[in-house]
Amino acid sequence: MIPTGEATLGPFFPPRYVDKGANDLTVFEGRQATGEAIEIHGRVIQDDGQVLENLIVEIWQPDAGGIFRHPADPRHAQADPNFLGWGRAATDAQGRYLFRTIQPGAPEGRAPHINVMLMFSGLMRILKTTLYFEVGAGNESDPVLSCVPSGRRGLLLAKKQGPNRYCFDIRLCGDGETPFFDD
């Protein structure tokens, strides 16, 4: 069967679908996840620099031990029961998003990373990218980061701004365009 065609989210995605606390991955069903809590924030910018409000950002990541809460992971029985690995945020009136999460561990064969997807009015298809850490061990040999032309890899590195705070700005197109993946 042919997969159903994608379509834009449009300008009317219900605000109630960004549930309170959906951007905080450090707590799951009232329980505290294991690991180092971090904040990831950034701005999403379109080509003319216009601020984009109510753009939806979703993330998916492994737990502090690098384990995904999913049966495809051979180690998933050992996954942190207090960590879902998924969150959703909307950009505010200044075009900023914020997640509180756990510093991801390195899954086998990968550098520590967080999968990011963007949905918005005028985006005819979901945009997918991957966030890496500026100081992350294993970035040089990560098989996904290695697919990105070397001159653009730096655009996928979250900048450390404090002991537990990282900035990851996303530019949808134009100068400094964030690399997005074809999948």
């Binding site: 998916w60 990968r110 999968n115 991957t130 996904v144 949808l172 365009e177 999948d183």
Partner: peptide, 17 residues
């Protein structure tokens, strides 16, 4: 204004995706 102009990067999906 909102859709990438650079070619999308092809990758072989891993466990993460």
């Amino acid at each position: 204004w909102r859709n990438p102009r650079q070619p999308l990067v092809k990758r072989q999906p891993t466990l993460s995706e």
